[in-house]
Amino acid sequence: MLEIPKMTFVEYFKAPLEKVWKTFVNPNGWDPWFTDGMKVELKNGGQIYFRWKRLTNGEIVEDKGITILIIDKKLWEFWWYEYEDGFRSQVKMVFQPDGENGTWLRVEDRLIIKNQDELQIAYGCAYGWGQMLLLAKIYIEKGEILL
């Protein structure tokens, strides 16, 4: 296995914690602003089903995941990016109110790759997290869907 540094992404939302939390952690996942048919069992050990169509030019892309830990309005930690040898990405989403009706979200992604040939997995995840956070920010703060 090749050890690569944990990727961390931080975004500030001009919205209360409750709204930000419900946008990210709900039974329909990141629909309608990022995914297309995502499903989440909201419990520790719960199954996650990811599905994209709009972001992939009409091609249906699916993946699975599993929740490791949910702490209401604080933390959602899960595995995803399934390969033939198991999940490759452990994600921790940490939610923190700022005391002024805004919310910070920190996304940490620990990837498992076997060798340098798999670095595209890390690049793809980094790109995806940035895109997801930007689309979420516009959706939460402006109520707009850009897909």
Rank of each mutant, 00 (worst) to 15 (best):
G130E: 04
I70N: 03
Q116Y: 14
G130A: 05
T67N: 15
E118A: 13
G128V: 03
Y139Q: 07
Y81S: 05
E84W: 08
F87H: 10
V94Y: 12
K22L: 05
F34Q: 06
I68F: 04
G86T: 11
Y49I: 11
L134R: 06
F87Y: 15
G128P: 04
E141D: 08
R88Y: 02
M7Y: 06
E100A: 11
K142S: 11
Y123N: 12
M7L: 14
L55Q: 02
E84M: 07
L75T: 11
Y139I: 04
T67I: 15
I140A: 04
G143W: 14
Q116G: 12
T23W: 04
K73C: 04
A122I: 10
K19I: 15
W52I: 04
A126V: 03
M132Y: 00
K137Q: 10
E141N: 07
I140N: 05
K73D: 04
L42G: 04
E118K: 13
F78R: 06
I70Q: 05
M132W: 00
T56M: 05
G86F: 06
R54P: 00
V40M: 13
I145C: 07
L69H: 09
R51M: 10
N26K: 13
Y83E: 14
Y123S: 13
D63M: 09
Q116R: 11
I121M: 14
E59F: 10
V107A: 06
N44K: 13
W129V: 03
P16R: 00
R51H: 06
D98T: 15
V91N: 04
L42H: 09
N101V: 07
Y12M: 15
F95D: 06
G65D: 08
I71K: 15
T35S: 14
N26C: 14
T56L: 03
F13K: 01
T103W: 01
G29L: 02
Y127Q: 12
K114T: 04
W52G: 05
Q90H: 15
L17P: 05
W76F: 08
D31Y: 02
A136H: 03
K53L: 08
K73I: 00
F50E: 01
G102V: 04
K74D: 09
I48E: 08
K92P: 00
Y12T: 15
I121L: 15
I68R: 03
Y49W: 12
I121K: 14
A15K: 02
M132K: 06
I140S: 01
G37V: 08
V91D: 00
R54S: 14
G143R: 10
F9K: 08
